[in-house]
């Protein structure tokens, strides 16, 4: 555990000097309060930007963050040195994973605060975000482990991220897309977030998120088994 904690601490220090990752973590949490206060259109649902950007944030930040950190460590051989230092792959992945999850959750807290939810609403919001960030982080980890270089990771991350992040928004305008999107966790997270203020929530989407989570875990396990961390 102490090695995972050391990796967590190192990632924290590194993030402040890594603009690519930092932007991913800060962009949506910074944009949400600005957009919520600056844009007012008649008929626009309450907390429109909070909910829209929250689901986009889930599709982007944890996924790109995990993939970028792991692939960079592989490409620059820092990971090889770490493994030679008797750091176990599970300790490394735990350190990076917990860091990305925590950093993204901090962003989620900021987005949640911009929504001005009560205690129940905030708890639901953060729980949904926590689950979504976990699924995205698993997909990002699979991409990072599969990629030998950062370039390879980016070439896979961008299309996956675009699909996951933009599906909730596109499904608002197109029923066909909505019919497909409902099987993805980012769409179900968007649906759940849209029900926070409702007296009763339809929670069947939780099963889709859990199913997506299981698939992401299996994908990660398969990629890890094939490639390892070398």
């Amino acid at each position: 555990m102490s090695k995972a904690a050391a990796i967590f601490k190192k990632e924290l220090k590194d993030t402040f000097k890594n603009k690519t990752i930092l932007i991913q973590f800060l962009m949506f949490p910074a944009l949400v309060p600005i957009m919520e206060n600056a844009v007012r259109i008649d008929g626009m649902p309450e907390n429109f930007f909070v909910k829209l950007f929250a689901s986009m944030y889930i599709g982007m930040a944890p996924l790109t963050g995990m993939a970028a950190v792991i692939s960079e460590e592989k490409e620059k051989n820092t990971l090889r040195v770490l493994l030679l230092s008797n750091v176990k792959p599970c300790e490394y992945l735990l350190g990076v994973g917990v860091y990305i999850w925590t950093a993204c959750m901090l962003g989620a807290v900021v987005i949640c605060a911009a929504g001005g939810y009560g205690l129940r609403g905030s708890l639901v919001f953060l729980s949904v975000m926590a689950a979504g960030i976990l699924v995205s982080a698993l997909i990002g980890a699979a991409i990072g482990v599969w990629s030998k270089t950062q370039m390879m990771a980016t070439s896979v991350t961008v299309p996956v991220m675009m699909v996951l992040a933009f599906l909730p928004m596109l499904s608002m305008f197109n029923d066909s897309i909505a019919a497909v999107a409902k099987y993805t966790y980012s769409e179900q997270i968007s649906i759940l977030l849209n029900q926070i203020d409702a007296p009763r929530m339809e929670v069947s989407g939780v099963w889709v998120i859990a199913g997506n989570g299981l698939l992401a875990a299996l994908l990660f396990a398969a990629v890890y088994r094939r490639r390892g961390l070398e």
Binding site: A6, K9, K10, K13, K17, N18, T78, L79, V81
Partner: peptide, 22 residues
């Protein structure tokens, strides 16, 4: 190793501090 495997964005001290923690 010949490719060194150093964390380029971190300082000299922080690179060693990380391994000291490990």
């Amino acid at each position: 190793m010949d490719d060194l495997g150093l964390y380029e964005r971190l300082s000299v001290y922080d690179n060693l501090a990380f391994y000291a923690d490990i």
